[in-house]
Amino acid sequence: MGAYIIRRLIQAFFVLLIVTFLIFIAMRALPGDPILIFLGEAETESTTEEQLQELRKEFGLDKPIMVQYANWVIGVTRGDFGESISYGDDVLTMIAESLPITLHIGSLAFILSAVLGIPAGIICAIRRGGNIDASVTLTANLGICVPVFWLGILFIYFFGLKLQWLPIQGYTSPFDDFWLSFRKSIMPVFCLSVFTLASTTRQTRSSMLEVIRQDYIRTAWSKGLKEREVIARHVLKNGLIPIVTLKGFHVRLLFGGSVLVETVFNIPGMGRLAVDAIFNQDYPIVQGVALMTALIVVLANLLVDISYGWLDPRIRYQ
């Protein structure tokens, strides 16, 4: 297992390199110039070509792309992610401020979708064809189709403006004011988790149903076990394997979803940082965010693979 993890980490290193390189190229392939955006229309008029060159040189944008990338990688290995073009702040500090916010909302959404979705799927599978199954499955199908931003705006209108139950925007750290933080996070967390919750429910239901009809489950019944014991001991552990795969995939989805949710609810997380940076063509921030996201996704995948081994001895012993 140890050797396996090391091999995977080496792989992960190359994945990160490729991902950041592709983002690097893609950002620079976009039309537009970060310096001009930074200066704004009015100032651009009054700035001479020499001054523009000067600014480009300051951010290292005058060098060939490969050199720029190499410089960036070298910087990152030293913990220097560069400076934001539009804000002038240190990128690592900006990420360090916004990432915990995204992780807070994202992990709550992740936990919510697992804690509600898995039991819901199990109940559907056990009571297949019943009323609970029918209504939960229908709701889950709706949840998969609903666009996050639309749901977010609807919630803001209904719970925020009409009923005035919940604050409509912003973020408060739970360490500053737990209750306010909780109230503020209800809508974003729910919006963010709708899709993952729905797909977790559906996946759990179908993989439970798949396992329930296996021969070894019939064997478990034939021993005289209670339904609860058959499900908890025999079905669940086998059924979890595809669910773990899905949950790994959800980590990535939650980062993608955070872009929308943070924009709709005006939360200063990494998703919104990324959106603003892309609009401003703020290369260093986009690079830093991409690296962080890729790192977390790669680690999540590694965790998924390790869980396979824990769940299935046939994988562990290979």
Binding site: Q214, D215, Y216, R218, T219, A220, S222, R233, H234, K237, N238, L311, D312, P313, R314
Partner: peptide, 13 residues
């Protein structure tokens, strides 16, 4: 005792 020994035991226990 069932027909299929290969699939009648739970693989993960």
């Amino acid at each position: 005792v069932f027909q299929e020994p290969m699939t009648s035991l739970n693989p993960v226990l």
